[in-house]
Simulated assay, not measured.
Amino acid sequence: MSFSMTPDEFEAAVSDALDNVPDRLLAMMDNVAVFIEDRYEPLPDEDPHTSLLGLYDGVPLPERDDGWAAGSMPDRIIIFQEDTLAACSSREEVIAEVQITVVHEIAHHFGIDDETLHRLGWG
């Protein structure tokens, strides 16, 4: 199972997924940038075959204190193109998976954990 898509097509899928997030929710996000990278590179202590579709790298809003903003780099949401395409077999599946992944990573920014996201169907 794998689907081919150009980088521009994949970027459009990510952009569309972000456009589908309610404006009120996007307005509550603070200091977050969204990136697309080719593939997830497993950490040294991870299985070298680990594959992720997305990653939230930052400090969730509920964990930030008053001194957090001083010199802080933006949080990052990373969507991994090759890993996503490898997990999908059609354009529709890629679009759906990107939407789920974008919402999933935004939820982490708001402090929602994986267990809760899986229970809600956004795993």
Score class of each variant (00 low, 15 high):
Ser2Trp: 11
Phe3Gln: 04
Asp8Phe: 12
Phe10Asn: 00
Glu11Gly: 03
Ala13Ile: 00
Val14Glu: 02
Val14Ile: 04
Ser15Leu: 13
Ser15Pro: 02
Asp16Cys: 05
Leu18Glu: 02
Asp19Asn: 14
Asp23Asn: 09
Arg24Ser: 13
Arg24Phe: 15
Leu26Asp: 03
Leu26Gln: 09
Val34Gly: 02
Val34Asn: 01
Phe35Ser: 10
Ile36His: 00
Glu41Lys: 13
Leu43Val: 08
Pro44Leu: 07
Pro44Phe: 06
Asp45Pro: 10
Glu46Leu: 05
Ser51Met: 08
Leu52Phe: 08
Gly54Gln: 02
Tyr56Glu: 03
Tyr56His: 10
Val59Gln: 04
Pro60Phe: 02
Leu61Phe: 02
Pro62Asp: 06
Glu63Gly: 10
Arg64Phe: 03
Trp68Thr: 08
Trp68Asn: 04
Ala69Val: 07
Gly71Ala: 09
Ile77Met: 02
Phe80His: 05
Phe80Pro: 02
Gln81Ala: 10
Ala86His: 10
Ala86Lys: 09
Glu93Ala: 10
Val94Arg: 01
Ile95Met: 14
Glu97His: 12
Gln99Val: 07
Ile100Arg: 12
Thr101Trp: 01
Thr101His: 03
Glu105Val: 01
Glu105Ala: 01
His108Leu: 05
Gly111Ser: 07
Asp113Arg: 06
Asp113Leu: 01
Thr116His: 12
Leu120Val: 11
Gly121Lys: 05
Trp122Ile: 10
